[in-house]
Amino acid sequence: MMVCPAGKNSPNSSLPLKDASQGDTVKLMDIRGGARLQHRLAEMGLTPGTEFKVVSNSRSGPCVVLVKGTRMMIGRGMIDRVFVVRV
């Protein structure tokens, strides 16, 4: 059986934000999107290497993160494209 390299058992490899759980503190690694999207997020405080907290992330509600003291909602379409590692 193949083991997924980004599986939950390997703490140091990056995972999409949608797989992070509530209460995790994570570090932003990569945003797989256009330059514009990256810039927009950078201006909201999400630059590569930034650590932030996942306030809530469940299938039943929005993904809310705490970045530099501000709560931000991130749409479901985007949480697949933001890659983080757990800290």
Binding site: G33, L37, R40, L41, M44, V64, T70, R71, M72, M73, I74, G75, R76, G77, M78, R81
Partner: peptide
């Protein structure tokens, strides 16, 4: 469509 990111006041 633009991705959704919004401050949660």
């Amino acid at each position: 469509a633009a991705p959704f990111v919004m401050e949660l006041p």
